[in-house]
Deep mutational scan, measured.
Amino acid sequence: SPEEIKAKALDLLNKKLHRANKFGQDQADIDSLQRQINRVEKFGVDLNSKLAEELGLV
Rank of each mutant, 00 (worst) to 15 (best):
R19H: 14
A52H: 03
V45A: 01
G24H: 11
G56L: 05
L47A: 07
D26R: 07
L10K: 03
Q36C: 13
D29I: 15
A9T: 03
H18N: 13
D46V: 05
L17P: 01
R35I: 11
D29P: 02
D11V: 09
R39A: 15
N21V: 15
L47M: 12
R35L: 13
E53F: 13
I30A: 05
L55F: 02
L55M: 07
N14S: 08
D46C: 07
V58E: 08
L12V: 07
I37G: 00
G24R: 07
E41A: 08
L47K: 06
L17V: 04
D26S: 15
K8E: 04
K6P: 01
G24M: 10
H18I: 14
L12R: 05
L10D: 00
E4N: 08
L10R: 02
D29A: 14
A20W: 12
I5S: 05
S49G: 07
A7V: 10
E53W: 14
N14Q: 13
L51M: 04
K50N: 08
Q25D: 10
I5G: 03
S49M: 04
P2C: 12
V45I: 13
K6N: 04
L47C: 06
E54K: 04
V45M: 05
A9W: 05
Q25C: 15
L51V: 04
Q34G: 04
V40Q: 00
I5T: 06
S1G: 07
G24T: 07
V58G: 08
L13F: 00
A9S: 02
K22L: 14
R19W: 15
G24S: 09
A52T: 02
K15L: 09
S32P: 01
L55S: 01
Q34E: 10
A20S: 04
L12M: 11
Q27T: 08
K42V: 08
K50L: 10
L33C: 02
L10P: 00
D46K: 07
R35F: 10
D46A: 06
N38M: 13
K6Y: 03
I30T: 04
A52C: 04
I30G: 02
E4P: 04
L51Y: 06
L51D: 02
N14H: 15
K22F: 10
D11S: 09
A28I: 10
D46Y: 05
K22G: 06
R19T: 11
I5R: 04
V40K: 00
F43E: 08
N38D: 14
E3P: 05
K50Y: 09
A52R: 03
D11W: 11
R35V: 11
K16E: 04
D46T: 06
K8P: 01
K8Q: 09
R35N: 14
N14R: 15
K42Y: 06
L47Q: 05
L51C: 03
D46I: 05
N21T: 14
L17S: 00
S1W: 09
A52F: 09
K6R: 12
Q36N: 03
K16L: 14
G44P: 01
L57T: 03
A28P: 04
E3S: 08
V58Y: 11
L10M: 05
L57K: 03
V45H: 01
Q36F: 06
K6W: 04
L57I: 11
K16S: 04
H18V: 14
L33V: 06
L55P: 00
G56P: 01
D46P: 08
A28M: 10
N38F: 09
F23P: 04
K50R: 08
K8T: 06
A9I: 08
R39M: 15
N48T: 12
A20D: 03
K50Q: 11
P2K: 11
N48I: 04
D29Q: 14
N14W: 15
K15R: 13
G56T: 04
I5E: 03
E4I: 08
S49K: 02
P2T: 11
V58F: 11
Q25N: 11
I37C: 01
R39Y: 15
P2E: 11
L13T: 00
E41L: 12
A9V: 10
L51Q: 02
S49N: 03
N38R: 10
V45Q: 01
L12C: 08
N48H: 11
K15D: 08
K6C: 04
Q34S: 05
A7Q: 13
K6T: 07
Q36Y: 08
S32R: 15
L51R: 00
G24V: 05
F23I: 11
K16Y: 06
N14F: 15
K16N: 03
E41Q: 13
I30M: 05
D11A: 14
K6G: 02
R35M: 14
V58L: 07
G44A: 02
F23W: 10
L12T: 04
R35Y: 11
D31V: 08
N48C: 11
L12W: 12
L17F: 04
K16V: 03
D26Y: 06
L10S: 00
D26V: 10
L51I: 08
S49Q: 03
L17T: 00
N21G: 08
V40P: 00
K15P: 00
I5H: 08
Q25F: 15
I37P: 00
E4L: 09
I37E: 01
K50G: 06
L57R: 03
F43V: 05
Q36S: 05
L47R: 05
H18D: 15
A7S: 10
L55C: 02
N38Y: 10
E54I: 09
E53Y: 12
Q27H: 08
L55V: 04
L12A: 05
L17Q: 01
Q36P: 01
L17Y: 04
R19M: 15
G24N: 09
L17D: 00
K16D: 02
V45R: 00
G24L: 06
A7Y: 10
D29H: 14
E3C: 10
E4Y: 12
Q27C: 08
K6L: 07
E54G: 03
L47N: 04
G44W: 02
K15S: 09
S1M: 10
I30H: 03
K22C: 13
A20M: 12
K42D: 05
I37N: 00
S49I: 02
K42P: 00
L47P: 12
A20I: 06
P2Q: 12
L55H: 01
F43I: 04
E3V: 05
N48L: 07
E3L: 09
A20Y: 11
E53R: 12
